[in-house]
């Protein structure tokens, strides 16, 4: 699988979205945050809804973590 390069889709809302994600985690313990993240991954995967695209994204996420 060739790893995709992920271009920006958020435009001028990037900072706001990032802040909203931090807010979603506010006040949670670390384990509650992990659980929230797991739910988010599942929800976003369902929103994307395209198996081969998701497999590319999983691979991209895994590769970036190796640095």
């Amino acid at each position: 699988m060739t790893l995709p390069t992920l271009d920006d889709n958020l435009g001028t809302e990037g900072d706001t979205v990032y802040a909203a994600l931090m807010t979603a985690h506010e006040g949670l313990s670390e384990s509650e945050s992990h659980a929230l993240n797991a739910r988010l991954v599942l929800i976003l995967a369902n929103e994307i809804g395209d198996r081969s695209r998701l497999e590319e994204l999983f691979a991209a996420a895994r590769a970036a973590g190796r640095r």
Binding site: H34, A35, A38, R39, L42, I43, N46
Partner: peptide, 15 residues
């Protein structure tokens, strides 16, 4: 963790 969160989501979300 993923298994449990699938179950948590299932109460409200058909997917």
């Amino acid at each position: 963790l993923f298994r449990d969160e699938v179950l948590n989501l299932a109460a409200d979300h058909p997917f």
